[in-house]
């Protein structure tokens, strides 16, 4: 058992190496019909180096990253604030819940045509999309999290002399953290999926746009480079929040 635990971090890489090896082999041995469309891993790695060295990848990656960060941060903060108010005050929940329930299920990309006309095609457009994509789920999770906090905890806090705001910040919000983090974790990954789609359709810069250009030039190696960057970003964003969730709640959950 102990031995397994010690080995575990290293083991995760083994399947990936095997996978890359098979990929390389299959491409080199022309096992796929129309091999022209299927570059081996080494070509992709070389292209990755090339794109990084000449700054194309970095430039596009940074513009996508900036959009995701700005949209996601503003969207989740707004969602957190409104969700907290909705979860805490029953009458506000009653007033807003029907509206939120109606808007929440609309996929973020569904807003794209509308926003293209309202905002125009500029930097604000992808940020607005990401904002919407983060705002509603986090609002929903926060409100649900707070509403689901056992009434007894809140009443105990009240009898211990805590003011309303104190009960909210020291009992309701901490106990809603697991829910809030679920929202953050899912949406951090989702933001990357949405930004790529938005960039493919409407924005001329960013990873998504790079992929579309690569497609028109039939540069599969570039497309795969972009996909790998995407996978790594989705994963690291989700892991980031998973890490903080564990850090903040594992002691008592």
């Amino acid at each position: 058992m102990n031995k397994l635990k010690r080995l575990r971090p290293g083991w995760g890489i083994v399947p990936i190496i095997i996978f890359l090896g098979i990929w390389e082999l299959v491409a080199r041995l022309n096992l796929v019909p129309g091999h022209f469309f299927f570059p081996p891993f080494s070509t992709v790695a070389a292209e990755f180096y090339y794109l990084t060295a000449n700054g194309v990848l970095g430039h596009n990656f940074l513009s996508s990253l900036a959009r995701v960060l700005i949209g996601f941060c503003t969207g989740s903060i707004a969602g957190l604030v409104v969700g907290t108010i909705m979860g805490w005050k029953e009458f506000i929940n009653k007033a807003l819940n029907p509206i939120v329930s109606l808007i929440y299920p609309i996929p973020a990309l569904g807003w794209l045509p509308l926003l293209m006309l309202f905002i125009g095609i500029n930097e604000a457009l992808p940020i607005a999309i990401i904002f919407i994509c983060s705002f509603f789920p986090i609002l929903y999770n926060t409100a649900t999290g707070i509403r689901n906090v056992d009434r007894n905890y809140i009443q105990v806090a009240r009898t211990l002399g805590a003011s309303d705001i104190k009960v909210l910040t020291t009992v309701a919000l901490p106990l809603a953290l697991p829910n809030i983090f679920t929202g953050l974790r899912l949406e951090a990954g989702m933001a990357w999926r949405v930004i790529i789609a938005a960039e493919m359709v409407a924005i001329p810069t960013g990873i998504g746009a790079l992929m579309m250009k690569a497609e028109s030039l039939i540069r599969i190696d570039i497309i795969i480079v972009c996909l790998i960057v995407l996978a790594v970003m989705c994963l690291s964003f989700e892991r980031f929040f998973a890490f903080w969730e564990t850090r903040l709640t594992s002691q008592w959950r």
Binding site: N152, Q155, V156, T159, P174, L177, T249, W252, R253
Partner: peptide, 11 residues
């Protein structure tokens, strides 16, 4: 007030 469920803050 000692609640029947005790309601110790889990966090």
């Amino acid at each position: 007030y000692l609640f029947q469920e005790l309601a110790l803050f889990p966090h």
